[in-house]
Simulated scan of single mutants.
Amino acid sequence: MAKIGIYGSSFDPITNVHLWTASTVAHRCHLDKVVFLPCSSKRKDKRMMTADEHRWNMVQLGIENNPTFIADDYEMKQDAWKISTYETLKHFKEIYKNDVIYFIMGADLLVDIAEGKWDHAEELIQENKFIVMARDGIDMLKVISNSPLLRNNDDGSTFHLLDKGLAMEISSTYIREEFRLGGEPRYLLPEACYHYIKEHSLYK
């Protein structure tokens, strides 16, 4: 029985922090695979700066040569009305029927779920397991204990909280701004992705 982490993000673009975070989570939580899941530009709660095609290509370039990392374009292929984390995790549990699936997310998203901002929130928490990464200023245990939804559906293994050394804040937004303003973010993202962005004149 393998342990699979689903790591969803816009990856616009994928950064070295994304890769370092995924590698660290895999090491600490003994994951056999991390699935990089770029979200679709059709999602109503996201505004993408880059076409799905380019983000998908950069994810594949960024994770090549690491056998623990795989990319999946499941959400990119879905109709907008079908896209939700609950449905996505249900899909991966069908794909990896004999394995344990974890959704990897930041503590800021845990707050959003606690506040009822996610579709199918109750079923999502009842039926899935989560690896939650610390974010500055968020007390993850307090978020869980203050939320009836989270605390009443936590059987002790629902949330794996990682609260040490994962709060690096080099964001995709910062890198996009550097490209747009003529900066030099070369060493903040995979070398192949840097050259891909230059070749395709992205983020100008």
Rank of each mutant, 00 (worst) to 15 (best):
R180H: 09
R28V: 09
V17Q: 04
K90A: 02
R43T: 03
D155N: 09
A2E: 11
E94S: 14
C193K: 05
V59I: 08
K42I: 01
L202P: 10
R186C: 02
D154W: 00
M49I: 05
I6M: 10
F179R: 06
K90W: 00
G183I: 15
Y96T: 06
P190S: 11
S171R: 11
Q78K: 12
M168Y: 11
Y187V: 08
S41H: 03
K93M: 11
E64G: 07
F11R: 09
Y96V: 05
T173E: 01
E75C: 05
G165E: 13
Y203G: 11
N16C: 12
N152Y: 04
L166S: 07
A71M: 01
K82W: 10
I175M: 01
K33P: 06
V34P: 12
L141R: 09
L110T: 04
S10F: 00
K164D: 14
A192W: 02
V59R: 01
M49G: 13
L89Q: 04
H18N: 07
F36S: 02
I175P: 00
H30T: 10
D136C: 08
L89D: 03
I83G: 04
D155K: 01
N153F: 02
L37M: 09
N152D: 12
K42F: 03
W118N: 02
E75M: 05
I83L: 14
Y96K: 06
F92Q: 10
S172W: 00
F179E: 03
A114M: 10
D79W: 15
R47E: 14
N146W: 00
R186P: 04
S41D: 13
K33H: 09
G182A: 11
W118I: 01
F92I: 09
D73M: 04
R180C: 03
H200F: 15
E169N: 15
E64D: 09
K142F: 00
N152G: 01
L109R: 13
N98V: 02
R43F: 01
I101D: 12
K44M: 04
V34H: 11
L162K: 03
S40N: 10
L149C: 05
H200V: 04
N66K: 14
E178I: 02
